[in-house]
Simulated assay, not measured.
Amino acid sequence: MVLRRLSALAAAVALLLGGVLVAASPAQAAVRVLYYDASTAQEFASVVHQGAQIWNARVTNVRLDPVPAGRTPNIRVYADNGWPRAYVTSLGNGRWYMGREATSQGYYQPRIAAHEFGHLLGLPDRRTGLCGDLMSGSSAPVSCTNPNPNSAEIRQVDAAFAGSLATAGTYVWR
């Protein structure tokens, strides 16, 4: 009874002050923010940001943001002349390379960026050959321009960041 009256009083005060009182849901976890550094991605910096935004538009439990000044990034992105590849130290942490070998062969750059971010988000290569599977990587044809994760990939990333699953490994775009 006392608790009910205190709740009603708190709601009334919030309304008088122009605010809204919202009850927190215990099932709703905070979004985990991962900071990435694209400063060494050279000519691919804008496509790195595009790859991050592709994920941000589709998942709810994690967000990829450019690293603010003075903060250590979770993810570092580099450019080199090899194949794109990722080195995952733990879920959401590591580095990946935007390899010019794949881009010079005509692979779609936003797809590469989203794919490599996918590794840092806990997804392995799946080599299905299907353009609709982001993690099929280079097994999909060069003509594939789909940079979006499919529903299963989205669910797997959201599930990984809802809990404490840790993933480590090396992934090479081949």
Rank of each mutant, 00 (worst) to 15 (best):
V13F: 04
M98Q: 00
R32F: 10
A79G: 03
W55S: 01
A113K: 00
A166S: 10
Y36C: 03
W173R: 04
L9C: 08
W96Y: 12
G70L: 05
L165V: 13
T167N: 09
T89V: 07
V33R: 13
A11N: 11
N93S: 15
A69S: 15
D65F: 09
A102N: 02
V33L: 14
T40Q: 15
G99E: 01
A23H: 14
I112C: 01
R85H: 09
A14S: 12
R174D: 15
R126E: 10
R95M: 15
F161V: 07
W173C: 06
N81L: 07
S46Y: 01
L6R: 02
L134Y: 09
A69M: 14
V62C: 11
A102L: 03
V31N: 05
C144K: 04
W173K: 02
N56Q: 08
A86P: 14
Q53K: 09
L3E: 13
Q105N: 08
F44C: 00
A52P: 13
P26C: 09
Y108A: 05
W83Q: 14
D37K: 01
A45C: 01
S25D: 11
I154V: 15
Y87V: 15
R71N: 12
Y87H: 08
V20R: 15
I54V: 15
A11Y: 10
T170R: 05
A8Q: 09
G82P: 03
P66S: 05
V62P: 14
A29D: 07
A23K: 15
Y108F: 08
P68T: 01
S104T: 11
D37F: 04
V2F: 12
P110H: 03
S7Q: 13
R63L: 11
R71G: 05
F161L: 04
A140H: 07
R127T: 08
F161G: 05
R85M: 08
S139Y: 07
E43L: 00
L17D: 12
L21W: 11
P147F: 02
S25M: 05
P147R: 01
V88Y: 05
E101H: 11
S46W: 01
L123W: 07
A57G: 12
W83R: 10
I54F: 07
R127W: 13
R5W: 13
P68V: 02
R76V: 13
T60I: 11
V157L: 12
S164A: 12
W173Y: 15
Y97H: 09
W173M: 15
Q28Y: 10
